[in-house]
Design a protein around this nucleic acid. Structure first.
Lengths: 221, 221
DNA sequence: GAAATTAGTCAAAAAAAATTTACTTAGAAT
DNA sequence: ATTCTAAGTAAATTTTTTTTGACTAATTTC
C-alpha cells in the first residue's frame, strides 16, 4: 500500500506573470498604506488582497519599507503629471485662477488615497519623502506657474493683490484638503456628514469664493 | 557560608503616589500618541519616559487602547475650555472675526500635540472620537457663537456676506492647521521650511487677510 | 500596631507581525 | 528537448510588542 505522504498535494498551480503580480501588489499596497498608515498596514492583508504569497513582497520589493516607498513615489508621480497638463495660458487670469482651485479641489476629492498617504507620511515626519529627490524636482514647476499667474493677473488689473505664490498654493491646498483629511473628527464636532456629496459640492463653491475674493477678483454676484 | 540567593536585591524602593504616577503616564502618553499615532506608539517608550513599569499602564488605564482614549478626551476638553473663554461680545464684528481667526491660529501653533492627535484619529477614521459623547457636546456652542457673529456682522453692514458658520469654521481651521499637519511634505514640495517662526508669522497674516477679505470686511491697507 | 488595600516590581508568557528557509515548477533560453 | 532562471508555495522562525501572573512592600484604615 502507498504511504499518505507520497500523495502530492493538489496545488492550485498559479500561472506565472511577474508584471501582473508586481503591479497587483503595488496597487493593493497603495490602498492598504492609505487606509492604515505605515505602522497600521499589514503585510498579510496585502498578500491576501493581492492573492499572492508574502514571499512575493520580499521578492519584488525587498520588504515592507521599500514597498511603502514605491507606493509614495507612484502617487506623487501621478499628481504631478496631471498638474503638468494644466498649463496656465493667456486666458483671463480670473478664469485661470478658478481653474487652479477647481483642479486642486477635484483632484483631491477624486483621488482619496493620495491625501491619506500624505497624511501618514506627515505622521512619520516626512521620513520617506525626504529621500525622494524625484518628488522634490517634480513639484517646482507648478509653484512657478502659479507665481507667473499672480504676476500677470496683477499687472492686468484683474487681481487687486499679488500674494506670495507659496502662501496662495498652501491656501488652495488647505481649503481643498482639510475637510477630507479630517472628515471623521470635524464631522463629529460640527454634527454634519462631510463625506456627503452635497456637502462637498457646497464646500467646492465656498473654496472658489474664498480664493477669488481674496485675490480681489470679484466673484459672481 | 551564606548563599547568594539569600541576599535581597537592592531595590530602588520608589515612594508611592497614585495621582502623580497616573498623571505622569497620561502626560507622557499624549506626546507618544501625538508623535507616533496609535499603531506607532510603543507601550515600552511610555513606561520609560514615565519612569514606571508597564504593569502600571494596565493598572491605571486597562490597556493601550483605553489609555489612548483618555488622551483624546483630555486634549479635546482642554481646547473647548479655552474656546469657551473666548466670548464674542458686542464689539466691532470685524474685530471679533479677527479674534476668532487669531485665536484658532495661535492655539494650533502653540499646542502641537492637539493637531497631531487629531491627524492620527482621522487616520483611524474617527474610531475613538465617535465613542465620546462628551467631545460631541462640548463643540456645539462654539459653532453657534460663530453663527451669531456672522448674523450680527451682516446685519450691521460690517460684512458683505453671511456665510454658513460651518463652512467658515472649517475654513478658519483649514487655513490655520494645514501647514502644520503637512509641514513635512509641503515643506519638501515647496522647498521652504514651514516650521520656521518667520514663515509661520507670515502665514498668520495671510490667514487673517484671507478670512477678512472673504467676509468683505476690508483689511488694513 | 495589625490587617487590608493597592501601588509598584520583575520576569515570563502570549499574541501579533515581519521575515526567511527550503522547496517546487512554469516558462524562457539555448 | 534540456537546462536554467526566477516565480511561486508552504511552513517555520525570528523579531517585536503587548499583556499577565506572582510576588513585595508602602500606606491607609480600623
Amino acid at each position: 500500500m502507498s504511504k499518505i505522504e507520497d500523495v502530492p498535494k493538489a496545488q492550485p498551480v498559479r500561472s506565472r506573470n511577474p508584471e501582473r503580480t508586481r503591479a497587483e501588489i503595488l496597487s493593493v499596497a497603495v490602498t492598504e498604506f492609505a487606509e492604515h498608515g505605515f505602522h497600521g498596514a499589514r503585510v498579510e492583508r496585502i498578500t491576501k488582497a493581492a492573492k499572492c504569497n508574502a514571499r512575493m513582497i520580499y521578492h519584488y520589493f525587498g520588504g515592507k519599507e521599500q514597498l511603502y516607498l514605491a507606493v509614495l513615489d507612484s502617487v506623487y508621480a501621478q499628481i504631478r503629471n496631471r498638474e503638468a497638463q494644466l498649463r496656465f495660458g493667456t486666458a483671463d487670469p480670473v478664469l485661470e485662477a478658478r481653474r487652479l482651485v477647481e483642479f486642486t479641489y477635484d483632484y483631491f476629492a477624486q483621488n482619496g488615497d493620495f491625501l491619506k498617504l500624505i497624511r501618514n507620511e506627515n505622521l512619520l515626519n516626512g521620513k520617506y519623502i525626504k529621500r525622494s529627490q524625484m518628488i522634490r524636482d517634480m513639484s517646482q514647476p507648478f509653484i512657478t506657474a502659479i507665481g507667473e499667474l499672480m504676476e500677470r493677473g496683477h499687472a492686468a488689473g484683474s487681481f487687486s493683490r499679488k500674494p506670495d505664490p507659496v502662501q496662495l498654493y498652501v491656501t488652495v491646498v488647505a481649503l481643498s484638503a482639510h475637510h477630507l483629511n479630517n472628515a471623521a473628527t470635524l464631522g463629529t464636532v460640527v454634527g454634519q456628514d462631510l463625506t456627503d456629496p452635497a456637502w462637498q459640492d457646497a464646500r467646492r463653491d465656498h473654496t472658489v469664493d474664498v480664493v477669488l475674493s481674496y485675490l480681489g477678483a470679484g466673484t459672481q454676484v
